[in-house]
Amino acid sequence: MDEDWEEGSHRLTSPGEPLTSSQAFMRGHGTYIDNEEVISSVAGTVERVNKLISVRAVRSRYNPEVGDLVVGRITEVQPRRWKVDANSRQDAVLMLSSVNLPGGVQRRKLESDELQMRTFFEEGDLLVAEVQAFFADGAMSLHTRSLRYGKLRNGQLVTISPALIRRLKSHFLSLPCGVDLILGLNGYIWVSKHVKQTEQEGEEAFDAEAVYSNKNDDIDDATRLAVSRVSNIIRILAAHFIPLTDTLLLDAYEWAVEQEGDVKELLQADTGDAMIATIAARD
């Protein structure tokens, strides 16, 4: 039975199923030990790294790791910290000390900053951040100390299962159709209007006004259409439980444009199925 895992063929399991003896192997996530047996506690695929046996659930909440890029929504403003909903088992924490403040990137936090926390992030604001560390109870701490991170605007949020987002070299994608994508590893995806690199990275001129602004830029109709088309494609892929990659997305986008249909028609079941069939065939 142990040999099954060597193949690379993924063995499926469900809770309460004995996997192997606990003397020869170590238990990882998704397993527990009873009576010297390693037993699965979730339904998913068995994975083995040397002597470590773990089971990865097919669908679950987001399990954060340090360095992950996440998209989140502020749920609460607390003294010197924000609480951020990031589709994880607890709300993440964004400390006031881990955000960029106006007037120079490196400076001490003042009491006045604490008093005007709501001018930076308010309840309901969306932001992109990186997982910095964990607290003792497993809650994650975020930071936005990079010019790429911070408040989000000019777009819309699409939520999918975190399992469908793979770790990529870059989670900031720029599609040729004038749409920017931020793939949060927590399953939150920000689809927005393309912003030119030069505008974004004015290293010296850190403009607090622009970074924490609540106003959208002007977005023309073509971009709006592209944004909603991309969003709908992501939704269809998620509904078919297909992991998101940029190639796939571009193929699908091309297909969608060829169809010349209305964007909203994409969400009809038969159009979606047709799209999946076509792009699967292209691979």
Partner: peptide, 30 residues
């Protein structure tokens, strides 16, 4: 089991995409 295999199949075989970090050869496609 049916549900698990349906989802795992959707994620893997139909799209022939890399799984996790251990087989990142296909990444070059991008």
């Amino acid at each position: 089991r049916n549900r698990t295999s349906r989802l795992v199949d959707a994620m893997e075989t139909s799209m022939k995409q890399p799984v996790g970090g251990e087989r990142d050869v296909v990444m070059e496609d991008r």
